[in-house]
Design a protein around this nucleic acid. Structure first.
Lengths: 328, 328
DNA sequence: GTGAAAGCGCTAACAC
DNA sequence: GTGTTAGCGCTTTCAC
């Protein structure tokens, strides 16, 4: 930076200002400075900036990445929102237990992040005080059923699951199983929504609720349909917690010669791959993951620039994609 | 840190050493120090550490993330290797043009990364000098056909594609189309491998080569099969550049009542979802993505700890998963 | 609108 | 094996 300052005939602090707070520097000087910056290819040192300014300019996204439960699309939304800002994004994978959650939270807090975005995190009461002390904006994304600690954005997973199961009922399926995954808030809400719909229809049976084990979801789906047909042949549809489980069920049905949708209906969840198709092969609940990520990042940005919390909780719409796997 | 030092009755530098180079501190002191650290919940400030030590302790992974061309699994491998180290990983999305590549490279260089892992990056000759100046270990991952600038790990995509197409030929498919994507090195090698196999069999026809447009790969797959059946009904199989394109083709075939594999064969690429299934629904080329990522990270770590380049180029094996989409 | 001085929290280099 | 000194490259504060 001092090189730039020398070449532009100003002091280092003016260069610093020209870069971060352009309005505080006269037009002429700013122009000269930016030219020199361009010329010598100066790039500021993040570490020094973070150390001096006491914030890193990094927004940390903590999520159970390895679930691949659509995190990817949300991450894209986050990145794209920050693209035009000087905030950069860092992703960290987080498991779903209180101790690990606390450890990662503490680690990030110590790095003075500009903001934190949490997905299915901070659900343990024990860690709530940690978040309260954070001193930076926090957005919890994905489900709106919990009161956000600071800000929140998501969909109503419970209502979405209910709508999906009601669609299955409307199509005439009568014994609807659940292939679930995970213990996080979204999974619990999906289960509740499933149960709501079936209780109302007088068709709820806990024996039809299956937890997928960890591992390859497509394989889990194949296994499920094999087990169902062997042990509960009366089941004629399944509501899956994500699309890859659903595709596994679909492929398994193909292998066994079970006709989809005539004999067996399949509904997935997330639907990002199918939302824009003219004719979707799979029925699914479309979750606006990209938009959720974008909005989460936007809330952080607005807090950072305007100093006020734009909204506390934002609810985005979901949609049932009626595809060929339940059309009959 | 000075708090810890005071409470432990030592100087700050000793605390620093106890944390980073434990062997340089006597057992007794180290124990006391670590106790105090635990007690007051001290967490080092990364920015200060990076500024003072001139390296950030961050390994940057630059990849065309948004392609979702299996990046995800490689990323898991990278993360898992670094989990037990004090290196942390940062991912950045990179497009596939020289200018953007140069910009991102420059940005990361300025942050003094501990290492850089590149996927389908640094293919532009104009950017090679940039990498040479880097001063940190660099691993290029995914394809072994190019001479790595520093270190490399991957598979032989050209040979893998040839093997896949030969499998299709063995199964009796005669007019084999290609549904390709992207312009990066892997995609080019896959095309070459496809061409190699068909030229050798006297069956290569450039009219059967299709570039998928950007956008939803599953939708691209559906479109392809529609177009093929309308305009080139003689085509009886397709080799796809990834599994989601292949699944799109599969679903499209279902919609149109084309029987897979009897009338039409489909082969995907990457195969991570199918590798461990007893009976895979889709034929695919299994690429050990996780292992590639893990190995890339391992090479960086070994360079960092041992100061020597462990290997220059590592080639991992691929495998053809013979699934139901070509079984006839 | 611009600059001087001080310091962010840590580590490299060297001394003991 | 431990401590002292200096400084990493930037921003804050305050003065002009």
């Amino acid at each position: 930076m001092s090189d730039v300052a020398r070449l532009a005939g100003v002091s280092p602090i003016t260069v610093s200002r020209a870069l971060r707070e352009p309005h505080k520097v006269s037009d002429k000087l700013r122009e000269t400075i930016l030219e020199v910056v361009e010329e010598i290819g100066y790039v500021p040192n993040f570490a020094a900036r973070a150390l001096a300014s006491r914030h890193s300019g990094i927004v940390a996204v903590l999520a159970p990445i390895m679930d691949m439960s659509g995190f990817f699309h949300a991450a894209r939304g986050v990145e794209e929102r920050f693209l035009t800002s000087d905030v950069s994004t860092q992703f960290a994978n987080i498991g779903l237990n209180a101790a690990e959650e606390a450890k990662l939270l503490r680690l990030f807090v110590a790095q003075n992040p500009a903001g934190i975005i949490l997905e299915s995190v901070a659900e343990f009461p024990v860690n709530k005080p940690l978040i309260a002390e954070l001193g930076c904006p926090v957005v919890q994304m994905m489900d709106t059923s919990i009161e956000p600690l600071d800000m929140g954005v998501g969909i109503r997973n419970r209502a979405a699951a209910t709508a999906a199961v009601e669609h299955l009922l409307e199509q005439g399926y009568e014994r609807i199983a659940l292939l679930g995954g995970g213990k996080d808030i979204r999974s619990r809400r999906r289960f509740e929504g499933y149960r709501d719909a079936l209780l109302r229809a007088g068709r709820y049976d806990p024996a039809y609720v299956f937890e997928s084990e960890s591992g390859n979801p497509m394989e889990q789906g194949v296994k499920l349909i094999h087990n169902l047909k062997r042990r509960m042949p009366e089941v004629d549809a399944v509501f899956c917690h994500n699309d890859r489980l659903a595709m596994g069920v679909y492929f398994g049905a193909q292998q066994m010669g079970i006709r989809v949708p005539e004999e067996f209906g399949i509904c997935g969840y997330n639907g990002v791959d199918f939302a824009e198709m003219e004719e979707s092969p799979l029925t699914s609940v479309y979750v606006p993951l990209y938009e959720i990520g974008f909005k989460a990042a936007d809330m952080i940005m607005r807090y950072l620039t305007e100093g006020v919390r734009p909204e506390t909780a934002v609810e985005l719409p979901f949609e049932i994609i009626k595809g060929n796997s339940t059309r009959r």
